[in-house]
Amino acid sequence: MAIGYVSQTLRQQELRPLATSEHPGSRAAIGMASVMAGDQSPSPLTGAGEPISEDEALRRLRQTADQSLQYYAAWWLGRMRSRHPDTVPLLQTALRQRQPRDPGAGVEHNAVARNAARALGKLGDTSVIPDLLAALNDEDDGLREAAARALGELRAEAAVAAITARLASGPAGAGATQSSSPRLREPCEALIEALGEIGVANPEVISVIAPFHDHERPLIRSAAARALLQLTAEQRWAEQLLALLNHGQLQVRRAALMDLGAVGWRPALDAIRSTLAENSLKLIALRGLVEQGKGEPGVDQLLAAMDELL
């Protein structure tokens, strides 16, 4: 193990580039994060815009009459890494809240619970893992997705069996398209990424992820290659990600950028520099190479490349 105290401390702080964007730690959000020059923070529904205090955020989460206020409060508490003793219990309660989608208010299905899951992933309190495991069994696949990502952020080894079980039916089962929507039956991308983040590299985990490396959707292929690279450090998975940097769709190139950054695969420097995508995303990817990676090219070269992209 090549990790000393320094890197452990850094990891606790917040190493993963994705987790530091305004969004839940996921490249799924990069579409929003990166709209060229207009990459401002999203305003999460009503109540956004004006700065609020921690007390105000807690008050908004505590009340249940206006769910859009709760939604924003949950996001705020995660984003601000709130350390207030009421924060985690309130988010745990919010995680059990269910509500239908309200198209009029622009609110997603189970919006408060989903944001509570995302916030709990950021706060680093591992005592909430059982709550997130419960959410991982919810019938709402969007909530399952948020819970999976949070478990990945918390490096929850206790979640490996449950996540692996959800993926075990493979690309034709978990990875098949739902009959009623274009979504997959399971939130495969989030589940696979979480396994990569948690980092338990046992043969069962690897054999469950491996079939997804040639899933019909390039974003799933990218997620699988990322997780397999994290778990095995085998060159071939890096090559799959490098190939996706040349994919015809911008969205796929963006995902591959985020994935190479999350793994910190430093040999990807030149490919990252030359792929056709926004500098904002290249910078996030290169930050990942600096912070997560090791070996050549070295830090000096990586920082020089970042300077060029500003």
């Binding site: 850094l10 702080q13 917040e14 190493l15 530091t20 600096v290 912070e291 830090v299 920082l303 970042m306």
Partner: peptide, 12 residues
């Protein structure tokens, strides 16, 4: 300053 890459660049 919780972002290691910013700290690194400032050191440099």
């Amino acid at each position: 300053e919780a972002t290691p890459v910013v700290q690194l660049r400032a050191r440099q």
